[in-house]
Design a protein around this nucleic acid. Structure first.
Lengths: 225, 225
DNA sequence: TTGTGACTGTGACCTATCCCACTGGTTAGG
DNA sequence: CCTAACCAGTGGGATAGGTCACAGTCACAA
């Protein structure tokens, strides 16, 4: 249950059992319904969260109201660390994409842990490094790839993290509307829809509401590059 | 001189004098001429570098050979940490944009320092967090802003870090060709050139080879948003 | 001096993608 | 069960920006 998810989470993975449960006991739990907002870009706040169950989206809104999603996070993933180590207002809005639950840790508690246990620091550093690497990849994709390519890549990434392989293909219940998918890849809903329709017409995938079945992972991967 | 730069560098800023000079003494120095490459994307390597003097560009190359610059770094800034905390090949190519010198620290040495001194860990965490925040901003810009906007923003950022204010404006010796500037903002050289020409014709800036003088920071800032 | 190569400046296309308009389907609340 | 929202699908026109093709400038070497 809860603790299994946390033990897998990179934040905890280097800790022994008693340390992990001590850390766990200083965390508070919370939950949200689909569509609810945990906090807004610009809010102040200094908690770090770990997703226990469900999915959330991290998004930012431009001056003229358009939205862009930085990431979709699922069980075991962490967010909110930015306001912690680089103090300042929250840099993104976090919204539940499905009903979801979290464990959270306050600034002070985390710092206490950091000072005592170097392994926690290493875990956090490698988490941040991985995130940074990924962010750089996103930048490269925006510069180099066209929209269909980015859509293919996003779907494969979601498949990796949330997909279940069956004999008719990889079922990906991403729980995102096409609008949200579009915001995730930085394109308009319409172009994303056309890209998806094109993939479907080639038999690479089958479209279902808030979900896809990827039938030809190989070609999708080739299209993504 | 050298040590002044390092003491300003975020990696060192939280250390007291004797700790800083101990850390300094475990670092090795090196230097490059303009155009020389320190390491290539895909290389293995586990050193962390701090720029002592000069400027470098971090770039990645796409499958079809086009280039994209992730960042221009100057004195006091750090790079190469990614391969450290998220082990793997180097994720970018580092090239000297001017003659430059560096201090470097090996994987093991850094980890030794990390375990002993929690402040070093915090410094690194906040560095990475700041970088991540910045990377997210770049993503948002690519999605929301047009090329002239991104050019304006890039120039202001360079001005912030490398500019010298005089009575005719802020002199920014960025040392980048327009080609490199284009790679930095993710656009073609031609469009960047036209954007620059437009800014110049409006009297917002004056163009000089590998350098600009920003005469109307206010309007540039407004254009960037 | 002249030639060579690197960089900047500019016009003319061409195309990916955005924006708009509309249709049909599906869901949720009264 | 009906109506309002929301969501997915699709066509067509407008456009930002990429690509191509040159011309002009400058530095530096022969």
């Amino acid at each position: 249950m809860d603790n299994d998810v946390l033990r897998q989470a990179p934040l905890f993975s280097a800790l022994d059992d008693e340390a992990a449960s001590a850390l766990r006991s200083s965390m508070t739990d919370s939950r949200l319904r689909r569509g609810d907002v945990l906090f807004h870009e610009g809010d102040s706040g200094d908690k770090l969260y770990v997703v226990l169950d469900g999915k959330v989206k991290l998004g930012r809104t431009s001056a003229d109201g358009r939205e862009n999603l930085l990431a979709i996070l699922g069980p075991g993933q962490m967010f909110g660390e930015l306001s912690l180590f680089d103090p300042g207002p929250r840099s993104a809005t976090v919204t539940a994409v499905t009903d979801a639950s979290f464990a959270s840790l306050s600034h002070e508690d985390l710092l206490r842990w950091l000072d005592g246990r170097p392994m926690v620091a290493r875990g956090l550093l490698s988490q941040l490094a991985a995130r940074l690497r990924k962010a750089n990849d996103v930048v490269a994709d925006l510069v180099f790839s066209d929209v269909p390519g980015r859509v293919a890549k996003a779907l494969l990434d979601l498949a990796d993290r949330f997909g279940r392989t069956a004999d008719d293909g990889v079922h990906v219940h991403h729980d995102l509307t096409q609008e949200e998918l579009a915001q995730l890849v930085g394109a308009s809903r319409e172009t994303v829809n056309k890209a998806l329709a094109d993939f479907a017409s080639r038999g690479w995938l089958r479209l279902e509401p808030r979900s896809v079945v990827i039938m030809d992972v190989e070609r999708m991967a080739r299209r993504a590059r």
